[in-house]
Design a protein around this nucleic acid. Structure first.
Lengths: 215, 215
DNA sequence: GTCTATAGCTAGATAGAC
DNA sequence: GTCTATCTAGCTATAGAC
């Protein structure tokens, strides 16, 4: 986790250590086996405990999933905010690049979380939820929308100041974000790759997306 | 389904009508609720029948998933083969574009299948499988590898003949495919969109990926 | 070929001891 | 706070009638 500890840090990012261990373990388990196929027993085993310890901190399995989803999105939001702060006043294309690199880098750094988000969002939308859960899920989905709108605004601004090609803005936005998010699908963590290595990979991916494959 | 019926048509694409109805229904259900959350009863209900009818044609739930996976990959392979045949002798960049558009268009046309493939592949890899099932799954995974290698070869060829930018070839390949596959995540089918409309959308997405967002 | 009935199992959630 | 024991629901898969 390479997220700055103090900058635009949402308070919800600060978890008690035992909860953080549970959420980390849940993210790993959900990534490897999928949400439905993962039992609470399995999450408990990963932290060397049993069901009871998990249920003491989280009401339900869905609650646990929402905690993973939330943490992943907040880590991303925090990092994107930093990228924007660092490029204040720069041309839109440069800010867009900074945001996209921050996004890709966060996917690599908090890999388990983002794979879970990636695989989990669709199913959850259709499932039967209690009102309170539905509300929490909707809030988290808002974070995705906020990010897409932010990128969209940068795309439009870039087309205005001439730093970006005139393309259908919404389509370009989604294709760009889709390409970044796709990293969560094809990337496999390597032991030899440190923070700096992941950052370089993030930049390379964004270069391909912004510059295209054609000469 | 806009797939040519005769060209490079794998025989496995020709299913008896009742089996096709079952696999179509399964793809829909898996897309909406996810593999694990979907019961065989639910698939049966969608074709106006009960469990028994499904189990008569498919031994197990996994068998049904494999049938969906197989059909999706074969539809894609067939369409890509046609695209390659149609661009024989053309510069590599043009062939790459044709393949990518075929891929994107097939994702839109056989949307349910590709969403299931997209969401399902990772989990299945880690699950406990019988030898026979493991073998079938490996065969289907091969189809993905074949496609990636095919795109990779086109990328390398394009860099040779100067029709593509000199980028890290594997990375560029995965980013391109990732961007195309990402369509299965953000696209939502529209009633007003016909075959031609989907084809145009596929072309627009590929234009963004090949040309990039920068001027 | 499709139905109903049911066996057998898994896993979410809770209660109460420590 | 974490444990063990247990209740309960829901689902895969099969058997046997029609």
């Amino acid at each position: 986790m390479t997220t700055p500890e103090n900058p635009p840090g949402d308070d919800r990012l600060r978890l008690p250590p035992n909860q953080l261990r549970i959420v980390d373990a849940a993210a790993e388990a959900f990534m490897e086996r999928g949400y439905d196929a993962t039992s609470i027993d399995e999450v408990a085993t990963r932290i060397g405990a049993t069901k009871g310890a998990v249920y003491y901190s989280y009401r339900s399995k869905l609650d646990l999933f929402l905690a993973v989803y939330e943490r992943g999105m907040l880590l991303l939001a925090s990092r994107v905010a930093t990228a924007l702060a660092n490029t204040d006043g720069a041309p839109a294309a440069d800010r867009l690049r900074a945001v996209a690199v921050a996004h890709a880098a966060n996917i690599l750094d908090a890999f388990t979380y983002h794979v879970v988000i990636q695989n989990g969002v669709e199913h959850r939308r259709q499932m039967a939820l209690k009102d309170a859960d539905r509300r929490r899920l909707a809030e988290l989905d808002d974070l995705r929308t906020v990010h897409e709108d932010l990128v969209h605004d940068l795309v439009v601004a870039g087309q205005h100041d001439g730093s970006l090609r005139p393309l259908p803005a919404r389509l370009a936005t989604r294709t760009l974000i889709g390409g970044v998010v796709g990293v969560a699908i094809w990337y496999r963590p390597r032991p030899d790759q440190d923070d700096e290595g992941r950052r370089q990979l993030a930049e390379q991916v964004v270069d391909v997306l912004l510059g295209g494959l054609l000469p």
